[in-house]
């Protein structure tokens, strides 16, 4: 199981950092990639992560109206929701991608979301792109 998280450097990444400092545990399947702003995460990044075999991808940004670049988190949220409507046409489940808004001091929310998301992706099983290409080998 491999989950990629794109976390914005101002809120989400700091909350994950804080979770580490407070010794909260979250699933080891999650790999966090620090980005300047959640709005910077292009659709291509998410698609590429899925195409290379990631089982789930989530984008984490600041809470509503608290984006450091004014509307980056709004763009990211809309992008993930449009993309999740498109994914079923490619044979992928729409719940493999998600958006999380979390403030830098809310480590608990990040950890809870991470656990839930990991569980959700686990119940879907492995990414079909990887599953079927593996069967072929």
């Amino acid at each position: 199981m491999k989950i990629i998280a794109f976390a914005c450097q101002w809120c989400a990444y700091r909350s994950a950092d804080l979770a580490g400092t407070l010794k909260y545990e979250y699933p080891s399947s999650i790999t966090i990639i620090k980005v300047p702003c959640s709005g910077r995460v292009e659709t291509e990044f998410i698609l590429k992560a899925l195409a290379e075999g990631a089982d789930g991808v989530f984008v984490a940004g600041c809470p509503k109206n608290e984006c450091h670049y004014r509307k980056g988190n709004f763009v990211a949220e809309l992008k993930t929701s449009i993309l999740s409507n498109i994914l079923p046409e490619f044979g992928l489940e729409s719940s493999r991608i998600a958006f999380l808004e979390v403030s830098s001091s809310d480590a608990k929310k990040f950890v809870e979301f991470a656990r839930n998301f990991d569980e959700r992706v686990r119940s879907l099983g492995r990414n079909p792109i990887r599953r079927y290409s593996h069967e072929k080998d």
Partner: peptide
């Protein structure tokens, strides 16, 4: 990836969350 750029374009010019309306009006958006 052209389609990914369309999603980027739509999300950056939208004023409110149009994802639900978009998938209702264009059921086969991909």
């Amino acid at each position: 990836d052209f389609g990914a750029k369309v999603v980027d374009l739509l999300s950056s010019i939208a004023e409110k969350n149009i994802a639900e309306e978009l998938s209702r009006k264009y059921p086969n958006l991909a």
